[in-house]
Write a protein that binds this DNA or RNA. Structure first.
Lengths: 345, 345
DNA sequence: AGGTGTTCCGAAAACGTTTAAGTAAGTATA
DNA sequence: TATACTTACTTAAACGTTTTCGGAACACCT
């Protein structure tokens, strides 16, 4: 632990500067001297001190990444994209799980800044990121990604949520469904608002009546919301023939509710989700869903960050909106004949 | 970015040393002076330079964590436990996804050492960790965790795999099954060997004939292996009434195979897995399985690491083996009467 | 007036690098 | 042979902190 450049210099009979140069590929070191230095440093088990190096170089190869919850599959896949691209470009990625808490967001950003990270990618916990901006004050480049981005953020990568909804509705409607209920949690975010708006537009474009069950502020999310909202819909007088869930997790909640009520999917109820998390493809789930190119989005985020880092023009906004696609599996079939007709107009 | 302690010192009309002391809670600074310094440093947006601090302090609050694949649910949950405990103890956790590649293991360990991490927790990719030991040379404390640990590693936390198998077999057998097939992937690891051995012992203790289908070296793993091995078993002359899978992922593969062949679970075939990944609890999966206390194991790993870090006696081995428990869900029922009798002796 | 203690602060070294500038020797050029 | 250019190094400053040691100022007690 305490073998430094100085140690090696003594052992090799040269100056510390010579050692540094030899180890870092400078050309003004003789070949035999370099070989001797390299050999000795290997023998002594030398480990360079990155703290000292970064201190004098006034930079580091560290990139920070803030993720609300890495055990959520969609974030895990975004991470994979970011990680791969960061590696490809020679950065060291520092993943921070913020546990869906803004307090942790600020403490992690502070730590990253103190360690002189080159840039930070954040999948924010909330659509309000002011606490983060207050810390960075444009001193370190920032790129946002994920379901909570909005236009108040300078740099971000997002997906075209309206288009995603159009794909989902188009698929269900083409099977003959007319009474398509949308279930949406987390309505504060622009992402979810866009999905609902896209749903409404797509329904109206087909002359169908949109019907959306939107979670009120502070309500449950994900599976819990899906289950509870679906049970409500099942209990109401008007049973839809298809449900469009605002995320796969919500769709899983619908499946749970359907299992509880003995409702067959897709026989009695067609279902489509959003996100294409890994488990949507399992044989026992087999969920038709709208897929975001998560891995590519992650890679894009790194790309944008590099742009933002290299740019002197700090004023420029770096944004990218990618297109989702529909993944057709087994959770949607044509409605039983005659069902759902009452909903048309 | 360029406001340092020196800057603040000038602005406050004191020495750099005074600033450092004021900001770090030393008692030999007057109250008004301290207040002035704190105010000014806040006004100027001062961010301490952790590189410089750690350089002189010859240490850091960084802990490294190597995970083969964070998108695998079981690793995500172990991570959560480690993360929470690391936070609680005031460390900064640096999560590195090694992508199941030993090359990345060595490059990450090198980076962590260069950045003077205090200690490293590694969930190894392989049961051979010699490439890691060669790098650290006991210069930095190491704790191993996960499914690839074995007794050649000094410090580790593992679960009692034999006990887990005993719980699984006990449950299935108590329902009346006699022909219980075990499917095991990844047999190089001690973990899997223990699970198989535990299965054999539990079967023999009941006078049942053990029958294990063990993946050969280089075969598929997880879902793919489970599916393929199950199809093989279904095609053989001897159809088991229950399958014990060496992991939940393998069990999911069995489910896929069963769906392909029209075999009902649990009606035609009972199934039990190992790990209790999050999705085992989904209504459409509903898998009975052996659960490891993953979160606690993570926390334990941090505890062991702290022991290893504080200890001058570096020779001591720090190990903990935790007990798994059975989570009963809906994938096991009594066999159809008369079935499976041929397997008894 | 002399001694002793306390309080508050400054000087300076140290941490392990990188790098601009300098230098001594050797080699080629005029 | 003096000059210029290479080659192969060395010197020393700098990066931004922490921390030991010491010292000035002041109060308190004989």
């Amino acid at each position: 632990m305490n073998v430094t450049i100085k140690t090696i210099a003594q052992a090799a009979g040269v100056s510390p500067a010579a050692v540094s140069k030899a180890l870092n590929g400078y050309t003004d070191i003789g070949e035999e001297t370099r070989a001797r230095i390299v050999r000795i440093s290997a023998e002594m088990g030398y480990t360079p001190n990155a703290l000292a190096r970064n201190l004098v170089k006034k930079t580091s190869d560290i990139l920070g990444l803030l993720i609300p919850d890495i055990s959520t599959p969609i974030y895990a896949e975004i991470f994979k994209g970011i990680d791969a691209e960061a590696k490809r470009r020679g950065f060291n990625l520092f993943l921070c799980d913020t546990n869906r808490r803004t307090e942790f967001e600020v403490s992690y950003v502070r730590t990253l800044m103190e360690n002189r990270a080159r840039g930070i990618i954040v999948a924010p916990v909330d659509n309000d990121a002011s606490h983060i901006l207050a810390l960075t004050k444009a001193q370190v480049p920032l790129v946002f990604i994920g379901g909570k981005v909005n236009d108040s953020m300078d740099n971000y990568v997002a997906n075209d949520n309206k288009l995603g909804s159009a794909l989902a509705v188009g698929h269900i409607a083409s099977l003959g469904h007319r009474d398509i209920l949308m279930l949406c949690d987390n309505y504060r975010t622009k992402t979810k608002k866009d999905r609902v708006e896209g749903y409404r537009e797509a329904m109206e474009a087909r002359g169908l009546e949109p019907r959306a069950s939107i979670a009120p502020e502070g309500a449950a999310e994900g599976i819990d919301y899906g289950c509870q909202a679906a049970l409500e819909a099942f209990g109401s007088g008007r049973m839809p023939t298809a449900i469009y869930a605002s995320s796969d997790m919500v769709a899983l909640g619908v499946m749970r509710a359907a299992a509880m009520r003995g409702i067959a999917i897709p026989g009695d109820l067609s279902l489509v989700g959003y996100d294409d998390i890994m488990f949507a493809s399992l044989p026992t789930v087999d969920l038709t869903t709208v897929a975001q190119p998560k891995f590519e989005m992650g890679a894009l985020a790194v790309e944008l960050l590099c742009e933002a880092m290299s740019e002197e023009l700090a004023g420029i906004k770096h944004r990218r909106v990618v297109k989702p696609s529909l993944v057709v599996r087994g959770s949607c079939v044509a409605p039983r004949s005659g069902a759902g007709e009452g909903a048309s107009r």
